[in-house]
Design a protein around this nucleic acid. Structure first.
Lengths: 224, 224
DNA sequence: ACCTGAACACCGTTCAAGT
DNA sequence: ACCTGAACACCGTTCAAGT
């Protein structure tokens, strides 16, 4: 009579499940997460979760959306809608920080917003702000897409972590220029931060060039 | 006596396993691939694979490396080592094409080269070419990293495919700027191609600016 | 050396049963 | 409505056994 089939107060909730699953993703990675482990962590039996989510993918989607929800979007409400460059820059930093805080969840996020509310809010905010700043809609779409490529790419595959911390792995006869590659694993943080900063600056500089050209040329053909 | 424990000619080989696994990844996605299915496809029992690979991850690594092996690197042997921009541009196109041909394998590739020979050859070639073109080593490393971020990001999360082909999913009250979002799913190809082209141009334009500034300033502090 | 079947400890998910 | 145990059809991997 202590462990009943149904207590008067529900043992589970969507939030509880998402929090537990998220902690498991962070601590042990995506592969280590099973519905049975989430349930065990919550002190219930495996199938209980199916009262709150249709399947495992829906749980992981919710975990990913919780990460998206932490991306700051306030810079897109700025007074000067024409300063798209600053807004985009600040957003990119917040975007990346949110993902780097939960690197194991990035593969799920990288699949796109789908129907995830927080993910859609992000796409909506950046698109709206770029249009307001004077970018044609087609270009605004491209900017949302290419920023996602760059940020998720940088959060997903830490460049430096991708190399092995073992000098013998990189035979100079095979890879004449990778003599120091095993050092990358050590300096992981700086390498990835440096590459991200360099790439972001290049991206924004390049977009500024396109913006100026567009304004000068009246955005020629593809304006609508 | 027909089905012996060991035939005089091996039934399996690493290449045979990789080809079968790769076809399965392409046709049904990463989740559908199991060691037992690969084995079944080859007409052998599941554990047989373990005579040729240590575990399933090693098989998937080999599949990913086969994709990397299809990336063209010949542009880095160009006569004029100083034309890094053209080489980088052509390489990015080939890189992306190789990944888009096997989108389901991209999550494995995105983990980094590790000890995969073809992946390392790519990293080696781009780093070597950038140094030859006059970039300081630290910048050359950044370029390799940021290009990987952008290309894998673009191949992994097709921006357009990330949206659902269903107008009702994007309530204008919630997402004021996503009125046409459901159309993205239809025009997937063009949207992603356009965003990639825009981003690549911006990236190269921005890097050219940094290169010029570096040459003019003698690459100031971080030259070594 | 290379393949087999049996076995172990897992999976995601369905479903009838309980309250 | 919400949880349970039992069950189904799977997993990756190990290992002793066969040739």
């Amino acid at each position: 009579m202590c462990r009943m089939a149904r207590p008067r107060k529900p043992l589970l909730s969507r939030d509880l499940i998402v929090d537990t699953a998220g902690a498991l993703v962070d601590a042990e990675g995506l592969d280590a997460v099973s519905t049975r482990r989430i349930a065990a962590e919550l002190g219930v039996s495996g199938p209980s979760l199916y009262n709150h989510f249709r399947n495992k993918d829906e749980i992981l989607d919710a975990v990913a959306d919780a990460v998206s929800a932490r991306i700051d979007l306030s810079m897109f409400d700025a007074d000067d809608p024409r300063d798209w460059r600053t807004a985009l820059h600040d957003w990119a930093l917040s975007y990346r920080a949110a993902l780097r805080a939960h690197p194991n969840a990035v593969p799920v996020l990288a699949r796109g917003p789908g129907r995830r509310p927080a993910g859609l809010r992000v796409a909506d905010a950046v698109f709206g702000a770029m249009v307001r700043a004077g970018w044609p809609p087609a270009q605004a779409t491209s900017i949302g897409a290419l920023m996602r490529y760059f940020v998720t790419g940088s959060a997903l595959g830490s460049f430096a972590r991708g190399f092995v911390d073992d000098a013998a792995a990189y035979d100079p006869a095979d890879y004449p220029h990778l003599g120091q590659a095993h050092l990358l694993a050590e300096r992981q943080e700086q390498v990835d931060e440096g590459a991200f900063a360099t790439g972001l600056t290049a991206l924004l500089d390049g977009l500024a060039l396109q913006y100026e050209a567009g304004v000068r040329g009246g955005w020629s053909a593809r304006g609508a």
